[in-house]
C-alpha cells in the first residue's frame, strides 16, 4: 500500500455530473423546474387569448359559446391552454406540497392525489372542448 491510499479520502467512482443527475425533489434533476418555466411562458399568450375570449363571451348563450370554440384556431388554442394549465398546476402544487408536508407517506399521497386530480380535470376539459368543438 502506498502512503496516498492511507490518507483520509473518499473513493468516488462517479463523475460530478453523474452524481448531480437525478437529484432534486422529484429525482428528475432539472426537468421539473424547466417544464414549469416552459409551461409558464406558454401560458402568458394563451392566458391573454383566453381572457379576451371569455370577456367577449360574457353572458353568451350556449350557441354563441359553441360557435366560438368550433373554430379550429379557438379549439386548438383551447386544447393547448388546457394542457399547459393543468401541467403547470400539477408541477406547482407538487412544489407547494413538498415544501410544507414533511411526513413521507402523507407527502406521497398528497402529490399523487394532485397529479390524479390534475389529469382528471384536464381530461374533462379536453373531452368537453372536443365534444362541443368538433
Amino acid at each position: 500500500m502506498s502512503d496516498a491510499s492511507k490518507a483520509p479520502h473518499i473513493d468516488i467512482m462517479r463523475s460530478p455530473l453523474g452524481r448531480a443527475r437525478g437529484l432534486g425533489s422529484t429525482h428528475k434533476g432539472s426537468a421539473h423546474w424547466w417544464l414549469q418555466r416552459v409551461t409558464a411562458v406558454a401560458l402568458v399568450p394563451l392566458g391573454l387569448w383566453f381572457i379576451f375570449s371569455v370577456v367577449g363571451l360574457t353572458g353568451a348563450t350556449r350557441e354563441q359559446m359553441t360557435a366560438w370554440i368550433a373554430s379550429p384556431v379557438s379549439l386548438s388554442l383551447m386544447l393547448a391552454l388546457i394542457a399547459a394549465t393543468f401541467y403547470h398546476m400539477w408541477l406547482g402544487l407538487q412544489v407547494v406540497i413538498e415544501d410544507y408536508v414533511h411526513q413521507e407517506s402523507a407527502k406521497i399521497v398528497a402529490i399523487s392525489a394532485v397529479k390524479g386530480l390534475s389529469i382528471l380535470l384536464g381530461l374533462i376539459c379536453i373531452v368537453s372542448a372536443l365534444k362541443i368543438g368538433l
Partner: peptide, 20 residues
Amino acid sequence: SGVALSVGTLLMTWWLAAAA
C-alpha cells in the same frame, strides 16, 4: 395565487363541461 388559480380551474372545467 397559484393555489387559488388551481381551485379556479374547477370553474373553467364546469363551464366547459356544462357547454358539452
